[in-house]
Design a protein around this nucleic acid. Structure first.
Lengths: 267, 267
DNA sequence: CAGTGGTCTAGACCACTAG
DNA sequence: TAGTGGTCTAGACCACTGA
């Protein structure tokens, strides 16, 4: 309903099979155009995470296509993790802010199968002008404002022992996207960071790309992670993006992999 | 045709929608059963990599279902990288033995975007009884025969310099699957290992799971990779499997990540 | 019960490939 | 031209959800 203004600008489509669609320079099938329109709706916040989008029949009527065509568009978006289908209930905008204990993109696992969640400890949060390298990766102009965050993730304590640090994260965020983000706000937040992004700043993280290396711990890093200086650490540089591949976060994690490993599935 | 004996044992299916299918304890839709039958055909070598499977209409007739149902089964197998569709030509069994320069599962990339392929150098190849840990992971009985291979991958030389080692791989293969594998045969082989597996031993690698760590180079490893002892290296333990999650290779790679990185895409 | 997504069918035309 | 996969439609029934 509120969408019709935006979404009804689909090229007129007569009934019949193999419908030719003009106005698109590079031909793409109807269901892909519908997918594109739906993605645009998500980008523009027409439907928010967790909310239901209109039913397949309603969308089919709106776009003047068959239910099967809408279905194929939604199918692709579901496999893209943009939508979630729930039989009998509807189709919902994927929210990556649910799985309470789950870290969204963290592939680190304990060597024993235990599933005890990691604790967070905020070390630093400050606004600054983005360094050249950071600005380049985040698609910012040189000197634009950025937020830098440093934090630790710790494995819960055994018995009376102190929790052991496992991950040291350094984050840079575009300052314009995260306007009201302060150390106090961060410290008060309980839950995954990406949930904060979505709930407070309407920044939805869709995917990421990581570059992984083995590095030797510097003196400072070693102290924070409680390892010997020069100890081997996993360096994970992550560029997180939202709809349309727009980068929204640069994160450099140092993982202590003595009792954990990074798990990856290839196909 | 040669398949009918194997594949025609699909439960009889009357025309009509929402066909109920018995004989399956946990209900699964028709297209999944057809997918399972097709996968079984692949496992049994009914159609070999690179060959075409029967057309959708032929399969639909054989299974007594509509073309659309077969199509959905094939669609899933295509996204699983088991089949490859080519419009106008047919549907083919995926062969992971093609991309000449491409290493099948190697996610390592040069930091500059250069695409120069790595050179291989075989260090060792011997038959032995599988160590307990290897046997466990490869699903072998203790003491069953195994093949162990050690090799280097090297970045091509700049100018007159010698090529620089980048990856040290240790592999264990089930001896029963790789009967005629000898050092001579390996040394003579030009091309990716996984292509050898497929061409000579009918072992098709479908997927893999990796556990990644940062480790310090031992004296021996350091010498082979031409780094200082104790230098940080990426340890990648890969368990490769064929159809039905059956493990066929255990590989432990040590990556020197000074000028390369492991790239991963998350979603 | 009505409404939703999930499966299945039957048949049409399009786009591509190859003889 | 015939055969293949690719797209689209229209309509049926099933399985699940919640009032």
């Amino acid at each position: 309903m509120s969408a019709s203004a935006t979404l009804s600008d689909l090229p007129a489509t007569e009934a019949g099979a193999g419908t030719a669609v003009e106005a698109t320079p590079s031909f793409s099938p109807l269901y892909r155009q519908i997918k594109a329109l739906l993605v645009r709706g998500l980008q523009e916040g027409e439907w928010l995470p967790g909310q239901a989008i209109p039913s397949e029949l309603v969308l089919a009527a709106r776009f003047r296509v068959s239910q099967g065509t809408v279905r194929k568009a939604i199918d692709e978006m579901a496999t893209d993790n943009l939508l979630v289908r729930r039989q009998g209930k509807g189709t919902f905008v994927a929210s990556h802010a649910e799985q309470a204990t789950q870290y969204r993109f963290l592939r680190l696992q304990p060597d024993d199968g235990s599933a005890t969640p990691l604790q967070r400890r905020l070390l630093d949060c400050r606004r600054m002008r983005a360094p050249a390298e950071v600005a380049r990766l985040l698609d910012l102009k040189a000197g634009e404002p950025a937020v830098q965050v440093r934090r630790l993730l710790l494995a819960p304590a055994e018995a009376a022992a102190a929790p052991r640090p496992v991950v040291l994260d350094d984050l840079w965020l575009p300052g314009t996207l995260f306007k009201g983000l302060t150390a106090e706000r961060l410290a008060a937040w309980r839950g995954p960071l990406y949930r904060l992004f979505e709930a407070e700043f309407a920044v939805q993280t869709i995917g990421a790309e990581e570059k992984i290396r083995a590095v030797a711990a510097s003196a400072e890093e070693a102290a924070l992670l409680e390892v010997a200086p020069g100890a081997p650490l996993l360096s994970v540089e992550r560029l997180t993006h939202t709809y349309g591949e727009r980068p929204v976060e640069l994160r450099r994690g140092l993982y202590h992999t003595a009792a954990h490993h990074y798990r990856n599935v290839l196909s």
